[in-house]
Amino acid sequence: MEETPFKRFVRDFCASRLALAGAVALLAVLFIALFAPWISPQNPYDLSQLDVLDARLAPGEKLGNGKVALLGTDDQGRDMLSAIFYGLRISLVVGVSATVIALAIGTAVGMLAAYAGGRTDGVLMRVADIQLSFPPILIALVLLALLGQGTGKIIVALITVQWAYYARTVRGAALVERRREYIEAAQVLALPVSRIIFRHLLPNCLPPLIIIAAVQVASAITLEATLSFLGLGLPITEPSLGLLIANGFNYMLSGKYWISLFPGVALLVTVVAINLVADQLRDVLNPRLQR
């Protein structure tokens, strides 16, 4: 029986029960984010569905229309469960899109550095190193202090924070792969450089990139939540989980814990699930650990 690479990957991945649990949780989170408008009890941003009389109900209390607010309501009578579903959607969209764009930019820069070498390589990598010597939160704070608030701007900040990781990783992997025989063979065949890069070099640099991107999605989501909590991230019209938590902070001292607690739990579950999956990916995709 011949085992396909994909089947082997699935078997290796499922070897850890913890990783499997993470993958299941991640699928659930993705499902919720994708189908939020259809599975939420109410549309939290349709003002006609909100009733101020329902404001700040504790979890399990009944709304004016007879429905039960499982996770309570916020200061505007919004059902927290629905707000969390929608918030999760926004958090994931921002985190994932920033990571994908940063991945593309970082890969391009890393490839350029590895292929051009010399001065180009020196300058690009020195810029990356200098940036990596500052913590992400500081860079994001600087950028948002300069750019102001907005969905596009926070995505720009998250991209700026991330690109250097990918650039460094790709450059390292590409420099190793370049010396391999199959690249030499491709060069001897006089294949165009673009084909060598995209069909030969890039696919072989992917495994470390996938692992880093997985970890980075989680930290991008956390960073976005942190910045939104500080009031520097997303605008109030697009409340991500961070903004929901910030909103709940105002009511925490009067004992209304649920407005902050549950969005935080949702954030935590998302980040832990992604980290568990990333951890297992690292083990499965690392050829040195193959038994």
């Binding site: 939540a225 938590i245 925490m252 001292l253 814990y257 607690l261 935080g264 832990v272």
Partner: peptide, 19 residues
């Protein structure tokens, strides 16, 4: 590593300061 730090701060306030 996974806990969002600012949220942990809020939860600490909730438990040790409020409750």
């Amino acid at each position: 590593f996974s806990l969002p730090t600012f949220w942990v701060g809020l939860m600490l306030i909730m438990v040790f300061a409020v409750w």
